[in-house]
Design a protein around this nucleic acid. Structure first.
Length: 826
DNA sequence: ATAGGGTTAG
């Protein structure tokens, strides 16, 4: 049967009559020779309409299998060798995303002209095969035919595919030698290429040497600056372009929009939006996506959402941008809603979606969802491939407090950059695992390629503050000066915190004088620093000064301030601050503020008032609030209220051993041993173990740690001997052991032994042995300092004529000449 | 039949 094509074939013809051909292989020359004469061959109408018919077929080929049938048809009709059609096939397959077939079609062309070469090269580029594109270009250069030379069309594509700078420079010199340098397209590509390798200077040089420029040239230069973070230069070129009367288009707009936020220039952004609406550019997805991102960065979620709603066509970037907009503005619930909607609309999440998703999960604190995100990411192998996703997952687990998982993911990642390390270090610091943070930081310093940045310092410094590692902190201080980060407010603030928490308040103050202080961040640190040293009046003074300098206090400022008041016993001032916070600065108190207030009233002995205060709270009190009141009950020996409070406390947190210890303290203090037993068995039944108390001291760049009643330290014997001598001496001048701090119901001499082996005393004795006379001793204790140790230390400071600075989990105690800076109020 | 310049991240 012979088919005669009297009319141009349509889509149905294509689909219904050609499957057998397609199955037999589109490129076979055997098939070609047999088909031109034999039974199942096709005859095309050999008239002048032939080309038009194939043109239609090219247009109809929207899927690879249809394209293959067209290819087969070309073969059987003897047109496969036609250079026009075969070149179009190369492009057709490439546009359908099948670069292998495209390449095959190209290879089948016996005599390739420059059109064919250009098509092949650009096909590679369109499919992201940049190396193949460059290889193909070099192949073109070495081809025998002297007629086939690169032309104006060749260079733009090749430049786009340069994966390294040396290729780019080589091609630039070719362009120059062959005289293609004055072409608008070629020059725009050169500008683009140099910008991609962060050589904006070279790009600018090409731009400046251009005699004629079109919109594409301006766009290339503007985007070159934008993508290298040179926002000001980008806007300058943009303005110059406007002055020259060149009208911007959607490409200009989508390049320039991302620099509005870094420049904090919402006005320019909105003016561009107006222009966009006026010229109907909003129907371009790039433009609308750019607008969504810009508004999101300014926190204008409604405007971002408006742009999104008005879009006729949305792509993955639109969805990602909207999801990230809500996620980054602290609304994970809405963000998650859009993620679900996006999936319902059939969009496949990509790496950027997952980065947002990980943050959504950590913000909403949902541990179960974190597992599914992790699985999702693993299934696609993203963790190994994409540093961004891996880091986001590490960060997610760290923020959820699941630091072991964070560590596991970190270790599975193939490639790690400085952010990966920072995320893990921050994870450890924020979960109060300072020594692990320090260990990771030290490992990181072992990798030469990883250079610590601002984020690294901000992640490790709080660990040093936490354990009082002054010398390590000072090392970092030196480093910041070396790399020019000493004026960075975040690093500066962390250093202020380190000095303050290591007992060097003067140094902290000195540093405060050198850090830019227009933001509340350094103020909060220095106010808190004075607070933990018991200098409440100074904190209040600094707060006054802050207001005078026009710096707006935030909720952290008030936490620092209120806790400063509570440490110094400034009850009235504290209450005034609390009032000021709400009435002048319209800050609603959070749990931390309430906790400070309860602490403030409770320590001052206003237990009932504190209790009333809790009852009137606007939010549900958590363990820290009840814990503050329980602590006050301990100080003032109020057993009845203590029992009531602990009931409330164990309702919200039954896991924290510290509170059981506190309650048993209250009972032990008044000799109610049955109460002590009850609490102890309660804690035991719940499987809780007492946190071991330890104290540390940093001498000569090393930190020695002492555990209560432990004799494993190499100088243990000398330490206990020294303690014996000290105890005898201070008893002579009036020290009387206070056995109420001993929880065990044992004989008196045993009680004294227990008190003497408290970790802070071991550390102090060690300090006295190892440092020269009259040196100040700095001790760090992980729990609160024991009342009897506090008393003993006062006497020790007197007889040894030493200053002893003890930092416990709550505040500082400066012992000097038989007195403590806290005035026994803590 | 072939060409340049564009949006999202930890």
């Amino acid at each position: 049967m012979v088919l005669k094509l009297r009319v141009a074939p349509n889509r149905n013809y294509f689909l219904n009559f050609l499957p057998s051909l397609h199955n037999r292989y589109p490129f076979s020359t055997k098939f070609l020779s047999s088909s031109s004469s034999s039974s199942n061959g096709l005859e095309t109408n050999n008239n002048n309409n032939k080309e038009m018919d194939f043109n239609r077929l090219f247009h109809l080929s929207t899927k690879t299998h249809i394209a293959k049938r067209l290819h087969a048809l070309l073969v059987v009709s003897g047109e496969a060798l036609n250079i026009f059609f075969s070149t179009r096939l190369v492009n057709l397959y490439a546009n359908l995303g099948d670069i292998t077939l495209s390449r095959l079609a190209f290879d089948q062309i016996p005599t390739k002209n420059i059109f064919a070469w250009n098509s092949m090269i650009s096909s590679f580029v369109r499919n992201g095969c940049f190396q193949n594109a460059v290889d193909c270009y070099y192949q073109l250069l070495t081809t025998n035919s002297s007629r086939v030379r690169p032309d104006f069309f060749t260079f733009p594509v090749v430049l786009k595919s340069c994966s390294c700078l040396s290729d780019g420079r080589k091609i630039h010199s070719w362009v120059f030698k062959m005289g293609f340098g004055l072409d608008l397209f070629v020059d725009a590509s050169l500008i683009h290429m140099y910008s991609r390798f962060a050589l904006v200077g070279d790009a600018r040089k090409v731009f400046d040497e251009m005699i004629v420029r079109d919109l594409g040239s301006w766009n290339a230069m503007i985007s070159g600056f934008c993508q290298n973070g040179k926002a000001v230069e980008a806007l300058d070129v943009f303005r110059e372009m406007c002055i020259k009367g060149v009208k911007m288009d959607s490409v200009t707009v989508s390049s320039i929009l991302p620099v509005c936020a870094p420049l904090n220039d919402l006005v320019t952004g909105m003016l561009i939006h107006v222009y966009v609406i006026k010229h109907g550019l909003e129907y371009d997805v790039y433009v609308s996506n750019g607008l969504i991102n810009m508004y999101a960065k300014f926190g204008s979620l409604e405007l971002a959402r408006n742009v999104f709603d008005q879009m006729l066509v949305r792509d993955l970037v639109s969805w990602n941008s909207l999801i990230a907009a809500y996620e980054q503005n602290g609304d994970p619930i809405t963000a998650l809603g859009y993620f679900i909607e996006m999936k319902q609309k059939g969009f496949q999440p990509d790496v950027l979606t997952l980065v947002s998703l990980a943050s959504i999960v950590s913000q909403s604190g949902n541990i179960r969802s974190s597992r599914s995100v992790h699985c999702f990411v693993m299934k696609r192998g993203f963790i190994a491939e994409d540093i961004f996703v891996g880091n986001a997952v590490v960060d997610m687990y760290a923020k959820l407090g699941n630091i072991d998982y964070a560590r596991k993911v970190f270790e599975v990642m193939d490639a790690k950059d400085v952010i990966s390390w920072n995320s893990l270090i921050t994870g450890y610091t924020q979960n109060a695992l300072a020594s692990e943070a320090m260990e990771i930081y030290n490992t990181m310093r072992g990798h030469e390629k990883i250079v610590p940045d601002q984020g690294t310092l901000v992640s490790i410094l709080p660990a040093y503050s936490h354990v009082g590692a002054l010398q390590q902190g000072m090392k970092i201080h030196g480093f910041t000066i070396k790399v020019g980060l000493q004026t960075d407010i975040y690093v500066g603030t962390c250093l202020i915190d380190v000095y303050a928490k290591c007992g060097r308040l003067n140094d902290a103050m000195l540093l405060f004088g050198h850090v830019p202080r227009r933001s509340s961040v350094p103020w909060n640190a220095i106010i808190a620093g004075h607070g933990i040293h018991g200098h409440g009046e100074k904190s209040l003074y600094l707060f006054e000064q802050m207001q005078e300098e026009g710096v707006k206090p935030d909720h952290v400022t008030f936490v620092s301030l209120l806790s400063a008041c509570s440490h110094a016993g400034l009850v009235d001032k504290g209450q005034q601050c609390f009032k000021l916070m709400r009435e002048k600065y319209f800050i609603e108190p959070g749990l931390k503020h309430y906790g400070c207030m309860v602490d403030l009233l409770g320590r001052a002995g206003q237990l009932e008032m504190a209790h009333e205060f809790i009852k009137n709270m606007h939010v549900r009190p958590d363990a820290s609030v009840w814990g503050a009141l329980l602590g006050a009950c301990r100080i003032h020996g109020n057993v009845e209220l203590g029992a009531i409070v602990s009931d409330r406390l164990f309702e919200v947190d039954s896991e924290n051993v510290g509170y059981y210890v506190l309650l048993s303290n209250i009972y032990a203090n008044v000799g109610k041993w049955e109460g002590v037993d009850k609490v102890r068995s309660l804690a035991k039944n719940r499987g809780l173990k007492k946190t071991p108390g330890w104290s540390s001291i940093e001498v000569n760049n090393r930190v020695d740690v002492f555990y209560t009643a432990n004799r494993s330290h190499p100088q243990s014997e000398a330490i206990y001997k020294e303690l014996k001598v000290l105890m005898d001496k201070i008893k002579n001048i009036g020290y009387v052991p206070d056995y109420s701090f001993v929880l065990q119901d044992v004989e008196e001499d045993e009680k004294e032994q227990i008190l003497t082996s408290h970790s802070e005393r071991l550390a102090i004795a060690f300090g006295i042995i190892i440092t020269p006379p009259k040196t100040t001793i700095h001790i760090f204790k992980n729990l609160r300092v024991c009342g009897d140790c506090h008393n003993a230390t006062k006497y020790i400071s007197k007889i040894t004529e030493r200053e002893i600075v003890v930092r416990d989990s709550n505040r500082f105690h400066h012992f000097k000449d038989g007195e403590c800076s806290c005035g026994d109020y803590w």
